Amino acid sequence: MPLNRLLLWAVIAFGLDRLSKLVIVEWMNLKERGVIIFLDPYLNFAMGWNRGINFGLFADDAETAKWILIIVAFGISGWLFWWARRQSARLIHIGAGLVIGGALGNVWDRFQYGAVADYLNMSCCGIRNPYTFNVADIFIFAGAALLIFATNREDKKA
């Protein structure tokens, strides 16, 4: 059962990331349009190609960075899968599945586009956010937060 739960959440995260990119980047043609004003300033679509890691760090040698980041994503996902399936806590399986699915969604982008497709831009309260992110990034962040919460909870139980 834990393996099924872990795989289910990984597939959900991966599938929703791929679906969002198919709709926004491809069907709405954001990759050509560049910007689509949606609910300004709260939610807009702005095409960003991330060839490095967060905020474009280490993007100078894009081809080398691409392959290093693919290997790192597969390595971390593999280790996380191996570790999480040995745990009994439901929240650990969900969190690990979200991280794995999000990471593999971004890996898919690196194969398909040569870079991660970032397109969500959110601003609020008079502060203009210049950065973009994607659904996979949301799952990675939420999954990591859930893993921290769940492992701390399990440590307190023990």
Rank of each mutant, 00 (worst) to 15 (best):
156 K>C: 05
17 D>S: 08
113 Y>W: 15
124 C>S: 12
140 I>V: 14
108 W>A: 14
123 S>A: 01
73 A>P: 11
5 R>D: 00
28 M>N: 10
50 N>M: 03
5 R>P: 01
152 N>G: 13
6 L>T: 00
6 L>I: 00
38 F>I: 07
66 K>E: 12
143 G>P: 01
22 L>V: 08
4 N>E: 05
72 V>H: 14
26 E>V: 10
10 A>L: 06
86 R>S: 02
4 N>Q: 05
15 G>E: 02
21 K>R: 14
55 F>V: 11
9 W>F: 12
84 A>F: 00
130 P>W: 03
133 F>W: 15
23 V>G: 07
98 L>K: 00
79 W>S: 01
95 G>Y: 00
35 V>W: 09
117 A>L: 05
6 L>S: 01
18 R>Q: 15
51 R>L: 02
60 D>F: 06
86 R>Q: 13
150 A>T: 01
64 T>K: 14
92 I>H: 01
35 V>G: 06
78 G>M: 03
13 A>N: 01
156 K>H: 13
14 F>E: 04
3 L>W: 00
46 A>V: 12
104 L>Q: 06
20 S>C: 09
85 R>V: 11
121 N>S: 07
68 I>G: 09
43 L>W: 04
59 A>D: 14
145 A>E: 04
151 T>I: 09
74 F>I: 06
95 G>C: 02
81 F>M: 00
133 F>E: 12
152 N>K: 07
77 S>A: 13
92 I>T: 15
77 S>H: 03
100 I>A: 00
58 F>V: 14
4 N>R: 11
50 N>Q: 06
98 L>G: 07
145 A>H: 03
120 L>N: 04
54 N>K: 08
15 G>L: 10
93 H>S: 12
58 F>P: 13
25 V>P: 03
42 Y>P: 01
130 P>N: 06
55 F>N: 14
147 L>I: 14
21 K>A: 10
141 F>T: 15
106 N>R: 07
134 N>W: 04
